[in-house]
Design a protein around this nucleic acid. Structure first.
Length: 438
RNA sequence: GACCCCUUCGUCUAGCGGUUAGGACACAUCCCUUUCACGGAUGCGACACGGGUUCGAUUCCCGUAGGGGUCGCCA
């Protein structure tokens, strides 16, 4: 029998990071075993079923690179894949349950399921056999008075109808799974194989809620994370791939995925580690890809790009200093604008010694002698020339040039900056720096 | 309250009876670099507690404590 798994989110308006990780594990399992990954929208709650809420799910999954074989937009033989459109199927299933004498109707019209009230064991790939004593809970509601159905019922019916073989879901469902098994048995069906995966906790140690930073998948894009980093990091929460490194691409993750290695304890979300991973993924982008990724953030900072190639190269030059895409503007703004701020400690450096005036003057002379377009090597020669003229080491000149060029005391090498700036701006900025001297 | 899951450095974790308890992130120091980073090296730092079982427990069992979750006509 071929593997069939599903991710069955409810449209709540955003894709929760825990949901994304659940989708991820289902997806990895399906891909590993060449099975089918199905997306099913559990939108039985009419009020929440908005297009925006559905799109949040689709967008989030797509951003992460999780594709589905069956489901909305993908089609498939078991549709429709919106529970709101499957009423007739549920009615039919309810009839069989009623025919078997397993339901009863309340005065107000609600239909309840008669629990078998026997001990039920949940065999779980992660938690082992989890035993539940015969329940003393009230019988569970299957259908509301208005005819709409309850999660437990539709979830089980659809898993039967869609031929689901394995269910990876959050551990928060474990305590209810005996109800599902009770239903499967009432239908005369074998339940799927369950794997309840640990929850993702916030740094405080409780379940990630909407308010927690990083709870919404969409927020990662906003905050400057790369999807491949988030994808990778999410895999590390609740699972330890057997590999030399923790930085692993999707294909490798698929090969490595092994349910026996899934943890049973919850894990806290650690933004610092995600950031670290993100920095590594960022660095391996091509200059063009890096510019494309950074672009929205540069735009937002009001930086105008007129020379694509130069901009890409400039951004690439600070790749090892940036952890998040949001950090690019502060590292490269002076490449794109002349009215950049002069940081205080930078200004102090400029004004620190009386001989700085002569050093700047020598630099202007040396750079003025350069051709209109010059290489980084030529910039270096100009630097050496200026230093020699003043009988100082080139290193003594660097902080001054850096301050004049960028207004900050960090960044790429000064000759790199000079090269990207070009002769005109180099000279104008050195001249401007002279006016700041006292 | 009942039931379920869990418990190794601050965080994520390796460990599946005998280890100097390993790694990653974070942090600190040093090296590299006349910037900031990157990189390299070193350091800091953990088996929740109490009983068993055993020649020997981080590892197996029980209890306690702690954390998380579930008990809806939400999903």
């Amino acid at each position: 029998m071929s593997i069939r798994v599903r991710f069955a989110p409810s449209p709540t308006g955003y894709l929760h990071v825990g949901g994304a990780r659940t989708a991820l594990f289902n997806w990895l399992f399906a891909r590993k075993h060449h099975g089918a990954f199905i997306l099913r929208i559990e939108d039985t709650d009419e009020a929440r079923n908005t297009e925006a809420a559905r799109n949040a799910i689709f967008d989030g999954l797509r951003w992460l690179g999780i594709d589905w074989d069956e489901g909305p937009e993908a089609g498939g033989d078991c549709g429709p894949y919106f529970q709101s459109q499957r009423q007739a199927i549920y009615d039919r299933y309810l009839d069989t349950l009623t025919a078997a004498g397993r339901t009863y109707t309340e005065e107000n019209g609600a239909v309840r399921f008669k629990f078998s009230r026997t001990p039920i064991t949940v065999p779980d790939l992660v938690c082992g056999d989890v035993e539940f004593a015969a329940t003393e809970e009230p019988d569970m509601t299957l259908r509301r008075p208005d005819g709409s159905y309850i999660f437990h019922f539709v979830n089980v019916v659809d898993d039967i109808e869609m031929g689901i073989t394995h269910v990876f879901r959050g551990e928060d469902h474990l305590s209810n799974t005996w109800k599902h098994i009770d239903l499967f048995e009432a239908f005369g069906k074998n339940p799927p194989t369950y794997a309840h995966i640990p929850l993702i906790l916030n740094p405080g140690g409780s379940k990630m809620s909407k308010r927690d930073e990083g709870a919404a998948v969409a927020s990662y894009e906003q905050d400057g994370y790369l999807p491949q980093a988030v994808f990778n990091y999410l895999c590390l929460l609740g699972w330890t791939p057997r590999a030399e490194t923790e930085k692993l691409d999707p294909n490798t993750l698929i090969q490595l995925f092994d349910t026996r290695e899934i943890h049973s304890g919850n894990a806290r979300f650690d933004a610092a580690k995600l950031k670290w991973l993100n920095a590594h993924y960022l660095r391996e982008l091509s200059p063009e890809a890096m510019l494309a990724a950074a672009r929205p953030f540069l735009d937002r900072a009001g930086l105008i790009i007129d020379d694509e190639a130069n901009a890409a190269a400039a951004i690439y030059s600070v790749r090892e200093k940036v952890h998040l895409l949001t950090e690019f503007p502060e590292w490269v703004h002076y490449f794109f604008r002349d009215d950049f701020p002069m940081e205080a400690d930078c200004l102090a450096k400029l004004q620190s010694k009386p001989e700085n005036a002569a050093l700047l003057e020598a630099a202007i002379t040396a750079f003025a002698a350069l051709p209109d377009t010059f290489t980084e090597d030529q910039a270096h020669e100009a630097l050496n020339t200026a230093a020699a003229a003043q009988s100082v080491k080139p290193g003594a000149l660097m902080p001054l040039l850096r301050a004049a060029f960028s207004g900050q005391n960090r960044g790429p090498g000064v000759t790199t900056i000079a090269h990207f700036l070009g002769k005109q701006k180099v000279l104008s900025r050195l001249t401007a720096a002279q006016t700041l001297l006292k």
